[in-house]
Computed example of a mutant assay.
Amino acid sequence: MSKQAQEAREALGARLRGFRKDAGFASGRALARALEWQESKVSRLENGKQNAGDEDIRAWCLATGQEEHIPDLIATARHIEELWLEWRRQLQTGAETRQKKSLPVYARTKVFRIWNPNMIWGTFQTAEYAAEVFEQAIRFYEFPDDRDAAVAKRLERQRYLYEGERIYNVILGEQAIYSKFGGPDVMRDQLDRLVALMGLPRVSLGIVPDTAIWLGHSFSMFDDKRVLVETFSAELSVTQPRETELYARAFGLLRQSAVYGEAARDLILTARQKHVRRHP
Score class of each variant (00 low, 15 high):
L172E: 07
L246R: 14
T123H: 05
F181Y: 11
E96Q: 15
G252F: 03
R89K: 15
R29H: 14
G53Q: 09
L16W: 03
K41H: 06
G261K: 00
L31D: 10
T231V: 11
D54H: 08
E46L: 06
S27R: 09
L83A: 06
E128C: 04
D146G: 08
M119N: 08
M198T: 04
V229R: 04
S43P: 02
R15H: 11
G18K: 09
T123F: 04
L228D: 13
A127F: 00
W84A: 15
R154P: 04
R193M: 13
G199C: 02
L215D: 15
S237N: 12
L16I: 15
G48M: 07
Y160V: 02
L91N: 03
G18C: 07
V186I: 11
Y129R: 04
Q125L: 08
D189R: 14
D189L: 04
K3S: 12
Y106R: 02
R9W: 01
A30H: 05
R226Y: 03
A127H: 03
E46G: 09
I74S: 03
E7H: 07
G261N: 01
R33P: 00
S233P: 00
K21I: 15
S237R: 07
E86K: 13
A14F: 00
A271P: 07
A30N: 06
S40I: 05
K274Y: 00
R9E: 03
L85A: 15
P280M: 08
K153I: 00
